[in-house]
């Protein structure tokens, strides 16, 4: 047991942070956007090897990369591209990214990151389909959820797609690790942003952050962000499915509180798009229902920790969907 980053891990994080610092600024034109994907930074992270961490070093390091990038208000896609895809396709070499993750049962709906994706991994329950995405086939969908959303103009032919037989559980496992890492980073950043705000914003002649009711709720948000951080890293370290489930479950269980309280403490400012808060909060909200959601993942945990004679693990959370297309 060692909760301290090793020297190499520290070096990785600080090298990454110095790149991120130089590219974290939101361009003037994007000040009022719901989300802003920084394609240049995405390319740079790829070129400087940060998206290859899972393959070159290990999944824990890839999760650290995701946590750090999730702290930025601007978006780069490291979770699926740098962690999930390499863990699912270890023999493939670098996957053409960004990568989008898609629940097969909802293929006709809008998907997170689809407009920027070059590859999509589709959860079919038992199997996974790997799709090559042509941006011309994707119709952007407006959303306050702070990722680019888009839907397929025509439902892709999954039968013709490359298929990874039996890889569904593994996809969901790493999807859960990745989403927990992303929530951990975004929650920490949203909390830091809020702490700065409540320390300087005065009401009744004193800072908002001096009221006990505000303080206590911020501490509870902090506990949630910190627990999610360690659970995500443990799940990346261990490669155990139940650890991934616990990480994602806790990440998603905290969403209600984070969204409500952090919005609350910014008053009216927090509902404007010129205030950065929404970039983090609506990423967290977007991740709330993925890879099973609290209910589905709770069932998976129960199935793994206390299996019932009649119950196949994960049967409720990941129904095998009928072949599409």
């Amino acid at each position: 047991m060692d909760f301290q980053l090793s020297e190499d891990q520290e070096a990785l994080v600080s090298a990454l942070q110095s790149i991120l610092q130089d590219h974290a600024e939101l361009p003037q034109a994007e000040r009022f956007s719901y989300s802003y994907f920084n394609a240049d930074l995405q390319r740079l992270l790829g070129e400087s090897g940060f998206l290859g961490a899972a393959r070159d070093i290990g999944p824990l390091e890839a999760a650290l990369v995701t946590i750090e990038t999730a702290r930025l208000p601007v978006l780069v896609e490291t979770a699926a591209t740098g962690l999930v895809a390499p863990m699912l396709l270890p023999a493939d070499g670098p996957v053409d990214g960004p990568v989008a993750l898609i629940a097969g049962g909802a293929i006709g709906k809008a998907h997170r990151n689809l407009p920027i994706a070059r590859t999509a991994l589709v959860d079919l329950g038992e199997d996974v389909a790997v799709l090559t995405i042509d941006p011309a086939d994707v119709e952007p969908v407006a959303s306050i959820l702070a990722y680019p959303y888009g839907r397929f103009r025509a439902i892709p032919d999954l039968a013709a797609a490359r298929r990874l037989p039996g890889a569904g559980a593994r996809l969901r496992q790493w999807w859960r690790v990745a989403l927990a890492a992303e929530v951990a980073g975004a929650a920490q950043a949203a909390l830091d942003f809020t702490l700065d705000y409540v320390k300087q914003r005065q009401v009744f002649g004193r800072p908002v952050g001096s009221f006990q009711s505000v303080q206590h709720r911020l501490v509870q948000c902090h506990a949630h962000a910190q627990s999610t951080y360690y659970l995500a890293l443990r799940a990346a370290w261990s490669g155990e499915a139940v650890d991934a489930d616990c990480a994602a479950s806790l990440a998603q269980q905290g969403v209600q509180k984070l969204l409500f309280d952090l919005h609350q403490f910014h008053g009216g400012m927090g509902v404007t798009t010129e205030h950065l808060l929404h970039f983090w909060l609506y990423r967290i909200r977007a991740l709330q229902a993925e890879a099973g959601g609290v209910h589905g993942i709770g069932l998976e945990i129960a199935g793994r920790m206390w299996p019932a004679a009649t119950q196949a693990t994960g049967a409720d959370a990941a129904p095998q969907i009928a072949e599409a297309g």
Binding site: S249, L250, Q253, V294, H295, L299, I301, G303, A309, D316
Partner: peptide, 29 residues
Amino acid sequence: DDDPIVRSRAGSIAARFEGARLLTYRVID
């Protein structure tokens, strides 16, 4: 077996204890 609500609630609580476990282990570390 037949009550997914009970099972998912139990699973969610286990996740919360696991989170608390790691925050505690961090202090020992």
